[in-house]
Every structure is written in structure tokens, then in C-alpha cells.
């Protein structure tokens, strides 16, 4: 901070008066444009008021003073003061619109968070399945907010990022930002100094209380936070957690849990199968053999789906490596499968 010049110092003072801290990569651009307009306005305002005050004093009615003739119009003067402001507002328009287009187009690889607005609460859904009512973000990464509203208009507004977008029922809207600083360190929110998130579009009774807090973490800490937040395995009974995973990991698309054996499902049904024997064709073999559906069989079928194919089915299941589905999650899914009873 040793290199602060007088001008920087001045703009810092102006910033602290007019703005919350700049906490996204947009904020600098927005504040820069704001300051440009601000000094331009200040210049013209001082000019107008100085001229007005000077004339009001100099030509004030008093004994011995009377009006003097002067031209009542002057084409070149009037054209000058029409054209110069036109050029200046053209410049403002240009910077306003280029800055705006940057704010509208999120990069392809942006981390996408789904924003759900309803009277009068925000909820946020992360790609790994975590769901929260306060917003958590990784620093230094582009984050796209895909917004939906369940009822009336709301508006997603984070002053520190200088972004705002209405949430409109019946359609998707989006905005994005790159947070450029963390609010603190650590996975837990203790010690963080979060930013405000406001609802900026009037939405009824508790509009003014439809606020949330925004926490920005180091990327690695954010990963850990998101993992922990998504990790409902610790908190729910294993069978219930397994049911959630069975849905979320897409198992449900190929495996019926209602005994449906039709080809609508690529894989075999999984209800009522626990502890029973089934005919499978081992890899490299062409003769079926019997296998008991137990913990190790299920684990093997998830980690190496091609090892034993149920007779009559085609191999085609995704290989779930530990990064896609870890051992704890497999344990939960096993608990879920145990709980599935045969359909009457």
C-alpha cells in the first residue's frame, strides 16, 4: 500500500462513502464507471451552480442597477452545449453497456448454483447436491446463479458483488460473478465476515427480511465445505441416505424398485432381491452361474459392473469409481437395498 498516490487516496475516500467494499471482479469496473460519471457530474454541477450564484449576486436587483441588453439566443453556444453533453453521455453509454454485457454472459465452465426464491426465503442448491439457506462460494472462480421463483417476483442482490437479477416465476434468469476475496477462513462460519444478500424486488409482507448471508471460502476449503454439507450420510439413517443417493446418483434411471422387469429399465429390478440367488454370467464366461445378492456382490457390481452380468441383461452400467461414489455411500446404498421389499 506504499504506492498510494493522492489520486488513489481520493478515489478510496469516494469509494468508502458511496460503496460497500469491492468483492467481485465486476465491482472494480462498476465503481470505475460510477466514479467517472460522478466526477463528470460534479464538474457540470459546480459549473451550473457557480454560474447561477455568480449571476444571482452580480446582477442582483439594487438601486442604480438595471438589466443590460444581451443576445437572447446564440446558435453556436447552444449547439456547443448540446453537442458536448451528447458526446459525454455517449461515452457513458458505451462503458455502461460493455460492462453490462460482461455481467450477462457467464463463462462456460462457471460453477453453477441454483437459486430458489420463495416468500420470504432464499435457498441455494450446489452441483454436489448440497442445499443451504445461506450462500457459500469459492473465491476466484466464476460462479453462475441460475434463478427461479416459486411465487412472486424477487430480486437476487449482492451489493458487495454489484450484481442484481430478478427471479421471475415461470422462467429462468441468471447472473454470475467471480468473488475476489474470502470472507474469512475455515469451513465453519465462525470468524467469517459475510456479505449481505438482499431481495431487492418488493415481494410482500416480509420483503425486508428476505435477506441471506454470503460466505466466500478459499477454493479448497469451499470443496471441503460443500462435501461436508452434501454429506448427509452422517446425519441420516443409512437406508434413508441410501435412498437419496439412489435418486441423486442416477441408479433409479436403470433399476426399478417396484419389480418392473420390462425393458424400460436397462438393469434388473432391485427390490425384494436381497439374500436371494440369481443367475449371472461372469466376465469371460458364457455359462451362467448362481450368485447370492449380498454386500460383496453389490459392492462388486458398483465398482466393476462388467464382472457379473445378470442373465438377459446387456452390460452397460457406468463404472462407479471411488470419486463418483465412495465406500460410505456404497454402504448406505446397501442399507437401502436391504430395506426394499418384494412387490406384492
Amino acid at each position: 500500500m506504499a504506492h498510494i498516490t493522492g489520486l488513489d487516496m481520493h478515489s478510496i475516500l469516494a469509494d468508502t462513502l458511496f460503496f460497500p467494499p469491492e468483492r467481485s471482479t465486476f465491482a472494480g469496473d462498476v465503481d470505475g464507471l460510477f466514479n467517472f460519471i460522478y466526477y463528470l457530474c460534479l464538474f457540470f454541477f459546480v459549473l451550473i451552480i457557480a454560474a447561477m450564484t455568480y449571476f444571482a449576486i452580480k446582477y442582483c436587483a439594487r438601486p442604480g442597477h438595471s438589466e443590460k441588453p444581451s443576445p437572447s439566443h446564440n446558435e453556436s453556444l447552444e449547439i456547443t452545449w448540446s453537442v458536448i453533453p451528447s458526446i459525454l453521455v455517449g461515452v457513458i453509454f458505451f462503458y455502461g453497456f460493455t460492462g453490462y454485457l460482461n455481467m450477462r454472459e457467464a463463462p462456460e465452465d462457471a460453477y453453477e448454483i441454483q437459486v430458489y426464491a420463495k416468500k420470504w426465503q432464499w435457498s441455494f442448491k450446489y452441483p454436489n447436491g448440497a442445499e443451504t439457506t445461506e450462500l457459500h462460494l469459492p473465491a476466484g472462480k466464476p460462479v453462475k446463479f441460475l434463478e427461479q421463483s416459486a411465487d412472486v417476483l424477487h430480486s437476487f442482490y449482492i451489493p458487495a458483488f454489484r450484481i442484481k437479477m430478478d427471479c421471475v416465476p415461470g422462467r429462468y434468469t441468471s447472473t454470475w460473478a467471480i468473488p475476489n476475496a474470502t470472507t474469512g477462513s475455515g469451513i465453519s462460519i465462525d470468524g467469517h465476515q459475510p456479505y449481505h444478500l438482499f431481495c431487492a424486488e418488493y415481494c410482500g409482507q416480509q420483503h425486508s427480511q428476505m435477506r441471506a448471508l454470503v460466505y466466500v471460502h478459499e477454493p479448497a476449503e469451499f470443496e471441503a465445505w460443500a462435501e461436508k454439507e452434501a454429506n448427509f450420510l452422517e446425519t441420516k439413517p443409512p437406508a434413508e441416505a441410501g435412498a437419496i443417493l439412489f435418486q441423486r446418483k442416477g441408479c433409479v434411471q436403470c433399476h426399478s424398485v417396484t419389480g418392473d422387469r420390462s425393458t424400460k429399465y436397462l438393469g434388473p429390478p432391485l427390490n425384494g432381491q436381497w439374500g436371494t440367488e440369481r443367475d449371472v454370467i461372469p466376465r469371460g464366461s458364457s455359462t451362467p452361474e448362481k450368485v447370492m445378492m449380498d454386500e460383496n456382490y453389490v459392492r462388486e457390481s458398483i465398482r466393476q459392473p462388467m464382472a457379473k452380468i445378470v442373465q438377459g441383461r446387456k452390460p452397460g452400467m457406468t463404472v462407479f469409481t471411488p470419486s463418483l461414489l465412495n465406500d460410505k455411500q456404497i454402504t448406505a446404498i446397501i442399507a437401502y437395498l436391504k430395506s426394499l421389499k418384494d412387490e406384492k
Partner: peptide, 24 residues
């Protein structure tokens, strides 16, 4: 005096990038 302030502050709101922050 007052209308000049009112009019000039309209420039902040007419410019898209700054209006996103200042709107509402």
C-alpha cells in the same frame, strides 16, 4: 440546484453497468 442533482444522478441509472447495482 435540485433538478441538476436529480438529472445528473439519472446518468448513473441510465448506464447499464452501474444501474445493475443501483436499481431498486
Amino acid at each position: 440546484f435540485l433538478f441538476s442533482i436529480g438529472g445528473l444522478t439519472g446518468l448513473f441509472l441510465g448506464a447499464l453497468a452501474t444501474d445493475i447495482h443501483l436499481h431498486d
